[in-house]
Design a protein around this nucleic acid. Structure first.
Lengths: 240, 240
DNA sequence: ATAATAGTGTCTTTCAGACATTATCTA
DNA sequence: TAGATAATGTCTGAAAGACACTATTAT
């Protein structure tokens, strides 16, 4: 009875009868390259805010996308050619005013990727670029993307204090001094080498590749992130 | 030039020309009453999943709501008669399958409220009820609301380890033993009284009301949450 | 008086901070 | 050989864990 009723209901349901907001998904994709944290920005080809730079993203495509993540991964792949090893939902932003067209909702994700894995494809795309976070202040970004980046950055800063998630912004193989410099860049102040290493070793978060690399001093060991090391959180933060 | 172009674009833009997902907002509203953590559930009056219980929530109303939070606060007020003192975005869930009607996105919020402040109104509403978390296992909730509650619960458990946010599920005035029991219920194991109190005192998160209350022993001091104590996070977690 | 329990004293344990030291690399 | 820097030794300090103890309330 109720089942048949529901079937009739679903058959007559038409979303176009309702006045509903737009839905898009955007990505704050970070990397670490040449001692700087950078974010991938895209120049808008269409109205509104045409010509301004903003986060890669776009409308959910009900045919192409099964989940919200599919939308954003599709867009990231368009620009970088690859799928990032770390992606996590940041927050959704929705209001009547954030987009001139209509009431709009965007589901935002934070993602991390190595610079090198994007390099081949990104060089062929003219409307996408890695922008150092320090340069953002002078830019007038599309929509509320400036505020979104600010939130993503703050969340990533927190993660640098109690996890090694930032490591996903490095190449597959990296050294401990590199990882520490990245964390320091996110936090904005130097860290104690001893503390930084002690806890990573104790939690067994890295795998020794057996390789070493040297620049201006003794060779540093190359590590890679262990499976699931993104899920690990220390119960005590490093000093802020 | 571009400005006039944009104006023309906006004038001709009609959202109904596009095939877009449904957007709703839902709330996981928790309280603590009679030694149990409870969540507010609502019996669905309409298809789909008619008759099942689920989270309070509904479609974004472009006329009534300016922000996503407005949608969920409007729905909470319908059921409880009041606006909760704590609300925070949890996560958005979106997929082609989670709702039988169509591709659907829901932006979920976690909220906390005292049981007493809801009592007058909720008793007049027949389709809303406080359900102890332990009873949820036997229930077959609407949509993916079971999974959403699970995530909300886990996030709240984490907060119990490094903040006093759970305190918003208590009445305005409460005792330290009450707060500790709530945290213990969320964490699922006993806490050290000394540690629990020491850090709250050191961070000056509570205000002494000057009142006391006694049941089976010496009178306990009644405190209230200080302004902004939800924002405070300890840099070290209690033992899990 | 007794049981219950709010609140405190204080010792131990854990882990981050600080910083010196040693070893190893390039130029 | 000098300067840089990777890696480690080790002491200090801050804050949580453990648990005993005192004080206060209802019955």
């Amino acid at each position: 009875m109720t089942k048949a009723e529901e079937t009739r209901f679903l058959a007559s349901y038409n979303i176009h009868n309702y006045d509903i907001p737009m839905v898009s998904a955007d990505a704050a994709l970070f990397t670490y390259h040449e001692a700087a944290i950078k974010i991938l920005l895209v120049e808008r080809q269409n109205h509104p805010d045409k010509g301004k730079w903003g986060l890669p993203g776009g409308f959910v495509d009900k045919q192409l996308d099964q989940h919200l993540e599919d939308t954003v991964l599709r867009k990231i792949k368009e620009k970088t050619g690859v799928v990032p090893p770390y992606i996590e939902q940041l927050q959704s932003f929705g209001s009547a005013h954030r987009d001139k067209r209509d009431w709009s909702v965007t589901i935002c994700f934070t993602a991390l990727i190595s610079h090198q894995s994007c390099a081949p494809h990104i060089d062929t795309v003219s409307d996408a670029a890695w922008v150092p976070l320090q340069k953002l202040e002078q830019m007038n970004l599309a929509f509320d993307h400036g505020a979104i980046i600010e939130l993503a950055r703050e969340r990533l800063r927190q993660k640098a204090l109690y996890s090694i998630v930032p490591g996903y912004a490095l190449p597959e193989k990296f050294t401990l001094p590199e990882l520490q410099k990245l964390h320091e860049a996110l936090i904005g102040k130097p860290l104690q080498k001893r503390s930084f290493r002690r806890r990573i070793a104790a939690a067994n978060l890295l795998e020794d590749t057996g390789e070493k690399r040297s620049e201006k001093g003794p060779a540093a060991t190359l590590y890679r992130l262990r499976k699931n090391s993104a899920e690990f959180t220390f119960t005590r933060n490093l000093e802020e």
